[in-house]
C-alpha cells in the first residue's frame, strides 16, 4: 500500500524480498546499498542474529528521483528466510507494493525454493493479497556456483506465471539492479492505473 503525500509531494512504496534461507536477499540489499549514491539512500538497517542471519528484517530506503514533481521513494525490506520465522515474515508483508522472489539456483535448494514460494502465496493470501495481481518478479541467484539447475528447469518450477525473471550473482552485483528496476517499474505502472 503506497503512501501518497500531497503536502510534501512524496510517494512511498514498499518492496519485499522473499525467498528461502541463505538465498541472498540480504546480499541483494547490501549490494544496492553499496552502489547507491549517498544522497539517494538512507541507512541500511539489519536486525540480524550474531551469526548474521536475518532475525526480523533488513530495511533500506531509496530515493529514486522525481516523477511529475513527486519525490519517488522505495522502501526495500527482506524477510527472514529460515522456516521457523514465519510469524515475522507475515508481519513484513503487510502493506507490500511489490515482491521479489529470490531463488537459490543450487539443485539441493530446489525444495527450499518451492516451499518458500508456497509460503509466500499463503502468507500474502492471509493479508488479502494475490501474488498474481501484485507487481512481482523472480531472481535466480547464485548463477556462479557449480551445481546449479538450468534456467529452463528453474522457470518451470518457480515461474509458471511467467513474470519478469532475472539471473543473478548478488555477491558481485550481477542482476541485482535489473531485478530492482523491474519490480519498481511494475509498481509505478500499477500506480499509474490508479489502484
Amino acid at each position: 500500500m503506497s503512501f501518497i503525500n500531497y503536502a510534501s509531494r512524496e510517494i512511498n512504496c514498499k518492496i519485499v524480498y522473499y525467498g528461502p534461507g541463505l538465498c541472498g536477499k540480504t546480499t541483494n540489499l547490501q549490494y544496492v546499498y553499496q552502489k547507491t549514491a549517498p544522497d539517494a539512500k538512507g541507512k541500511m538497517i539489519s536486525l540480524a542474529t550474531e551469526t548474521e542471519r536475518t532475525l526480523f528484517f533488513d530495511f533500506l530506503p531509496l530515493a529514486l528521483g522525481e516523477i511529475r514533481g513527486f519525490k519517488t521513494r522505495f522502501h526495500l525490506y527482506t524477510v527472514p528466510g529460515q522456516v521457523f520465522y514465519d510469524a515475522s515474515r507475515k508481519l513484513i508483508l503487510k502493506g507490500v507494493d511489490g515482491v521479489v522472489f529470490v531463488a537459490d539456483s543450487q539443485e539441493e535448494r530446489m525444495d527450499a525454493n518451492i516451499e518458500s514460494l508456497d509460503n509466500l502465496r499463503i502468507n500474502l493470501k492471509e493479508q488479502g493479497y494475490d501474488l498474481d495481481k501484485l507487481p512481482y518478479v523472480v531472481q535466480y541467484n547464485k548463477r556462479d556456483l557449480p551445481n546449479i539447475m538450468t534456467i529452463e528447469d528453474l522457470r518451470t518450477e518457480l515461474n509458471p506465471t511467467k513474470v519478469p525473471d532475472f539471473e543473478a550473482c548478488a555477491t558481485v552485483g550481477e542482476g541485482v539492479f535489473e531485478t530492482l528496476k523491474s519490480v519498481a517499474k511494475l509498481i509505478l505502472i500499477d500506480l499509474k492505473k490508479g489502484k
Binding site: 500500500m1 503506497s2 503512501f3 501518497i4 503525500n5 500531497y6 503536502a7 510534501s8 502493506g95 493479508q127 488479502g128 493479497y129 495481481k133 489502484k195
Partner: peptide, 15 residues
C-alpha cells in the same frame, strides 16, 4: 489491493 492507499492532503497535513 486489500488495503486502501494512504493519501495525505495539505489541509489535513496542516491540522
Amino acid at each position: 489491493m486489500s488495503t486502501q492507499q494512504m493519501v495525505m492532503y495539505d489541509e489535513e497535513f496542516k491540522e
